[in-house]
Nucleic acid binder design. Structure first.
Lengths: 138, 138
DNA sequence: GTGATAACCTAGACTTGGTCCAGACATGGA
DNA sequence: TCCATGTCTGGACCAAGTCTAGGTTATCAC
């Protein structure tokens, strides 16, 4: 799914014309389970595609979000990061490093969000902060 | 608690020298249950204190955060907003207006956050999105 | 192949949220 | 009063993100 042809097909499925730039951006942003910023994507893509412009990266990321391939998140520092995991999940933010980790939806049990008085709740997520435990036994 | 003397005392309790500017900023930012941005605070404070500078507002808000009088949040749009409610609570974001509403801690029941494998979770909150219901009967 | 059209990309100017800094001003002891 | 310290101002600066004009490329009818 991350080879050139596969990505090209995926973009076309979503109604996106698979230009060389878009495929290059998609390779970097859809293949990671990290949460890169637009500038990180730009830097990565430029290694294999030096002429790509900043505007193209921003436009393409926006397009991918509009087409449901990506979602954006804002946490610490006010920078927008992109998340290729578009299914329901929660987030854990490492207070020491700022790293963002996805937490599976089933790992937590949230009750009461749907029947909140005065609000029609369409979606929700839990945002946790703390430290990552680096005991390898876990 | 929002009159001049009370605010002055509150600042001093927290080890903050209560200058005229700081009291003016505190009056606007601690008396609201909204979630103003720094620029909104600046605009408000300037109505009663036209000479206040942007740097002072930013510095003062940072100081209040450091002293535990305020907390910051980042949601949509990547702007930092300030929240005078520093106790535990959740957030609801109105998808139509972008407004942020505080949701009481007890309104939701979250299980599993404390014993998350691989992470030491220090704090968490639920971020909900949807529409505000404007039925007055609720 | 050729030309028209639309889609796409680039570079750079611009906007906005936020920080930094030098100098001015206030305040509180000795 | 003088000095030291803390605070405030205005403006320069920076970084993330957007906008725009013009150039390239792809598509398609002829």
């Amino acid at each position: 799914m991350t080879d050139h042809q596969g990505i090209s097909d995926l973009l076309q499925e979503r109604g996106i014309q698979p230009s060389a730039q878009r495929v290059a951006i998609a390779r970097h942003v859809l293949r990671t389970d990290g949460h890169p910023t637009a500038d990180e994507v730009l830097a990565q893509v430029r290694r294999s595609f030096p002429m790509v412009s900043r505007a193209t990266v921003y436009n393409t990321l926006k397009l991918f979000v509009a087409k449901g391939l990506l979602r954006t998140c804002q946490f610490e520092g006010g920078v927008t990061v992109y998340d290729a995991n578009v299914g329901r999940h929660h987030h854990f933010i490492d207070a020491a490093t700022g790293e963002i980790h996805d937490v599976p939806w089933e790992a937590l049990d949230v009750r009461g969000a749907e029947e909140l008085a005065g609000f029609q709740v369409d979606s929700w997520m839990v945002v946790m902060r703390g430290r990552r435990r680096d005991d390898p036994g876990a």
